[in-house]
């Protein structure tokens, strides 16, 4: 089985989808001839033609609107928003239109669209190339949100998203595109070669939306994480020696509540980790769910380790980023109660 980086796996997912379904169309800024600023669509236009994969103007609202219209026509559009930070001009089309199309038309129209977008920090992108806006969209009825943490999941989840008849926001942790990253920014960069989850089949497969994955079995505390933070959590468990069970959510909506509750009932403790700002972040939802469903199993308050409630600061990226030291401190606090 070939080894793929996450960016190669994402490229492969779109290649497979274009090959299998003539209704798949892909467009976005710089994604055509050039193959995208992160190379996610490299060579796809050359392989599948300009009628199906092409460049779009710098107009996120227009891109998503066109996708909604194409979806109504019967296409299955996959669009790229170049950075998640740029998604806001498209929010009206995402929230008021795509998310509610099936509902408001009594099921006669829907928006089978996938919106791919690189998110998260760690690349010195400052406040406009580092954000994690997933929490804004988890609040919207009608959207699904998937976030992979490795190449295998990235391809399987993206194919599942494209084949899904509901609108899916597919946020890609850009810091993981070319290698796993545990938060130790001062250590040599690793690539995906040799990583278990970088063995990716060439052809079609899906990782179903709504199924979490236990990436580490443990008994002392449950860590709920997704995207880059899965690797940070693994590192924190290793460095503290705390026997943490780590659940990679993979999909925020629909949420695999059963996997979460099963683990927290077993460990009795829970730490929620995300890179996004804290207030009203998805971690708040997770903490509330754990409290509602596992209250009598809890031995300690649920902790959140998140980005601070500030914009993402360019020069203080690593003070902002919830790295393994901060996660480790939370683990120690929680297990010592």
């Amino acid at each position: 089985m070939p080894t793929m980086s996450m960016i190669e796996a994402i490229n492969s997912a779109m290649d497979v989808a274009l090959g299998l379904d003539p209704d798949v169309m892909i467009f976005g800024q710089d994604i055509g001839y050039f193959g995208g600023v992160f190379r996610a669509t490299d060579k796809l236009q050359q392989r599948h033609g300009k009628q199906r994969i092409f460049d779009a103007p710098i107009s996120e609202g227009g891109i998503v609107a066109a996708a909604v219209g194409m979806g109504a026509y019967g296409k299955r559009p996959v669009v790229e928003i170049q950075f998640a930070d740029y998604i806001y001009p498209a929010t009206d089309q995402i929230i008021s239109e795509a998310a509610r199309m099936r509902y408001r038309t009594g099921g006669e129209w829907w928006s089978p669209i996938t919106i791919r977008s690189p998110y998260g920090g760690g690349i010195f992108g400052g406040q406009t190339h580092s954000q994690s806006p997933e929490g804004i969209f988890t609040h919207v009825a009608g959207l699904k949100i998937a976030i992979p943490s490795n190449p295998y999941d990235a391809k399987g989840l993206l194919i599942a998203a494209i084949e899904d008849d509901d609108p899916v926001l597919f946020f890609e942790p850009k810091r993981l595109y070319n290698g796993p990253f545990d938060g130790h920014h001062d250590r040599p960069v690793r690539n995906w070669a040799g990583h278990n989850d970088a063995e990716v089949p060439e052809g079609h497969y899906v990782v179903p939306l709504g199924k979490a994955r236990r990436v580490r079995e443990g008994g002392e505390v449950t860590i709920l994480a997704y995207g880059t933070m899965v690797h940070v959590a693994l590192c924190a468990a290793e460095e503290t020696g705390i026997d943490a069970e780590i659940i990679d959510l993979r999909t925020l909506v629909p949420l695999d509540l059963d996997s979460i509750t099963e683990s927290v009932r077993k460990t009795g403790r829970c730490v929620v980790v995300h890179e996004a700002t804290r207030t009203s972040g998805f971690g708040a939802e997770l903490a509330a769910q754990v409290q509602e469903h596992c209250f009598f199993a809890l031995e300690a308050p649920v902790e959140r380790v998140t980005g601070w409630d500030t914009p993402y600061p360019h020069a203080f990226e690593w003070e902002y980023f919830p790295g393994p030291a901060r996660v480790g401190e939370a683990l120690k606090r929680v297990v010592n109660i």
Binding site: G62, G69, Q93
Partner: peptide
């Protein structure tokens, strides 16, 4: 839609398809 104008750019997407 009650969010005025959203259909205008969707119509163009339909025509592109």
């Amino acid at each position: 839609s009650g969010n005025l104008g959203t259909q205008y750019s969707q119509a163009v997407g339909w025509a592109m398809a």
